[in-house]
Design a protein around this nucleic acid. Sequence first.
DNA 1: TCAATATAATACAATAGTGTATTTTTAACT
DNA 2: AGTTAAAAATACACTATTGTATTATATTGA
Lengths: 206, 206
Amino acid sequence: MLGRRMANTTKITPEEWLETAKQALIQDGVAGVKVDRLAKTLGVTRGGFYHHFKNQQDIIDRLVQHWVDTNDMLPPLEGVSTATEAADKLHELVQRVVLEEDFSSSFDLAIREWARIDEQIKKTVDRVDAGRIRRLKKLFLALGCDEEEAAFRARVFYFHQIGYYAMGYHTRQTRSKRLTAAPIYLHILCGQRYSEAVEKSNRKWA
Amino acid sequence: MLGRRMANTTKITPEEWLETAKQALIQDGVAGVKVDRLAKTLGVTRGGFYHHFKNQQDIIDRLVQHWVDTNDMLPPLEGVSTATEAADKLHELVQRVVLEEDFSSSFDLAIREWARIDEQIKKTVDRVDAGRIRRLKKLFLALGCDEEEAAFRARVFYFHQIGYYAMGYHTRQTRSKRLTAAPIYLHILCGQRYSEAVEKSNRKWA
DNA sequence: TCAATATAATACAATAGTGTATTTTTAACT
DNA sequence: AGTTAAAAATACACTATTGTATTATATTGA
């Protein structure tokens, strides 16, 4: 019984295999997602793996799908029409990306790296990115930007967030520091319309 | 003689090994930098490799150093003091990052991925990033920003550029399209001070 | 309790990759 | 041309990893 995994179940579910693969991907990159290493991590031999997954590619495919299904960087942005609502949504968004609730930037990053060398994964990531940028654009339209400005600001905002995570900057600062800095980033990235909406909102409550 | 590499020299220099490793890293990621694969690419056996490099780690270390020495994203930014000079430098910078002269974003990206899982490489990349951001900050100071704004804008500018490359956006658009879009990105990212400096500069020439 | 089923362990054959030691070839220099 | 030194080829022993097939062991449920 020595050297066995913590879990109380003696049989390993597909979800456990998948979660282990996810952690391996995050910690060791693509090279870490090896069937025998996952088994070692789980404290079993590879025997059971092939009951749940056809082969290595199978768990990889499911891991990418898992990312699509569970790791949305943005909160729901639907039903935003006024500039004030848009500004509020932006605050909510910043809360999410800073606190990383229901979202793992390291998972996002790891998948993104994989996408760079795997054409299939790249297509999936591109689709997800396009969707996120589309949703952000709507936010900037609600803020009062014209089509072109909204399109550009959505991209700049998103690229910046991706770069921020890619640099691992968020791991070097405390949450409170990041939350303090967030409004400054917002003013830089979201422009005049945003600053006006915030000021208006502040006057209302003052 | 069939199936041999193009090069006219029959012996392979350390530089050729290094260049092959670089291309392998860019195309296949970390997993591509394997001694036997490099040899296969060069059309030789691994025999000669160990004359030039102590082992696999050795070529990896030199590859990272090669990145530090040759792949600076930013042009020289020294000696900028006025807002107009700063604005000009920003244009030069954008030319460089868009046209990718003397700089390979895919190399940068590949090294950055490696840094995420290798603590040693991460330290090097962090040092380089800090230097680049410091130089950008000086540019924003010259533009007339105060300390805090300059620091934030430098980071936003840099994060955005990293994210832009990470998304592979530049591979989907023509150079001329990117050059047309560049001023818009600049106005968003560099703020009021930049727009003023550009306007002033335009009036001077009009 | 016993049978059925799911999962785990074990054993096997194969590939890819590492590093070292030895021999052969090639280029360069007198 | 003959010597020397560098690089390439070859051979070896070793580790990591994959996938399949077979056997063993738990869990579940009649």
